[in-house]
Structures are given as C-alpha cells and as structure tokens.
Amino acid sequence: MGKLFAVVVVLITLVSAAIFASHIWWLPVDISAHGHAIDRQLTETMATSGALFVLSQLALAVFAWRYGDRKDGRKVTAFPGGVTPMVVLAVVLVGAEILALTFVGSKVWAGIYQAPPDPNSLQIDVQAEQFAFYFRYPGADGRFGSVHPERIDEASGNFFGLDPANDTTARDDIVVPTLGIPVNRPVLLTLRAKDVNHAFYVPELRIQQDFVPGLVIPLHFTATDTGKHEIVCTQLCGLGHYNMRAYVEVMSQPQFDQWLKERAAEQ
C-alpha cells in the first residue's frame, strides 16, 4: 500500500509540474511596461516554490515507500539529528526565500501602485456600473467636468452625472464605452464606482484594481504594444458580473488622435 501511495504521489507531482513547466496554460502576451517585472517575479516564485513542492512530495513518497510495516520486527528509528537541524533549515531556507521574494517583489509592487504617475500621463476617468464600464476623456479644454451622482441618467447617456448646462468644463468631455489609449504613453485612470464594487482587469496589461463606491482610485500604466484586449470585472457585482466587459484598444499616437476626434464628433 505504501508503494502504491508513493507511485501515485510521484505521478501526480510529475504530471502537475510538467504541465506548469510546459506553459500549455500560461499568462497571455504582456503588453505593459511593468509586466515583465511581474512575470519575472512569478517565474522565480514558480521555480523556487516548484522545487519545494516537488521535494516535499518526493520526500513523502520515498518515506511512504520505504517505511511501511513489514512485520519483520524492525525497530522504529528517529529522524537523524532530531528536530533542531530541521527547524533551523526550514527557518533559514524559507526565511531566505521570503526575504528575497519580499525584497524584489515589493519593489515591483511599489513601481506599479506606489510610484506617482508620470506628470505627462493621459488622464482618463473610468466609471464602473452594473454591468458596464464607461471612459471619459477631458476634451479640448483638458479639464474634466464635475460629477454629480444625482444627475446620472442612463436613458440620456449621462453615465457620469455631468452638468453641461452649468459646468463649461463638462461640455466637451468625451464619454465612450471603449478605452482607447496610445501606445508607449503613460496612462492615468481614475476609477469610480456608480453602485457597487467592481474591478478593472486586463490580463495582457498585468493590471488589476477594484472600483470602490465612495473612493476615486488612481491606476497608472503604459501599454507597449498595439492591439485590442478585453477588460473584465473581477469583483462580484451581481447577476451580470460574468458579462461585464469592455475593450481596451491600444493605438499609435496618430491613430489615437484620430480615434478621439471621431469619438468627440459623436458626442
């Protein structure tokens, strides 16, 4: 029975590890300036914790194979060296891995979420609601109009609650259901939630952030490749959660300028 257990554990371990290593199911292409740091951190964690996974399972399997009761009168034997070296080894090895991961990983995190946005970032206001995203560009005046929740009106398309009658800065705001951004230019999103929690997740951009009602949350990144990708909600927001999505379209600067001009004309 011990041998069977050992064989099954080894098979499970090797098959699981092989599928991880083969990258059959793996991260999609990275199109962000910061994504390579996340990918590297993930790969390094995969290597070190993968080794721990395989070694632990193999030790379990080998001992189960080796130390079954064969009714041969053999005496049990204690673990060589006792518990102290094992504890020291665990503290040192796992502690070293923790230090390494924290040292590198916190820099990666800080670079994305704690670093101030580039002052030349393209600023876009994002409103999430059950079950859609809307994106607002400041228009020709470079300024966003104020938002007034009581003025939000889906029927007339006033998704942000703007007041163009009294607020001149709101008159040229461009509101669209697709996030258009230029390639290689820093983008600063300000995330607002109209009703409940939502989240902004673009796997290819290696970025994710919750929308929280009552908070305006900044999120900045730079896309490094053109293309169209899905923005999905990852925070449970109600029955239509699974279908809450928009697209991010990364364009060259001239294409973006043209795109924004066309959207402005449609307002």
Binding site: M1, G2, F5, S56, A59, L60, F63, A64, Y67, G68, D69, R70, R74, V76, T77, A78, F79, P80, V83, M86
Partner: peptide, 13 residues
C-alpha cells in the same frame, strides 16, 4: 515534522 515522523516508521497503511 509530519514527514520526519514517517522517517524510520513502521507505517500501518
């Protein structure tokens, strides 16, 4: 500790 306990055991499966 669990894995070390199995070491040198007479495991009854």
């Amino acid at each position: 500790l669990w894995i070390g306990t199995i070491y040198g055991a007479r495991l009854r499966f």
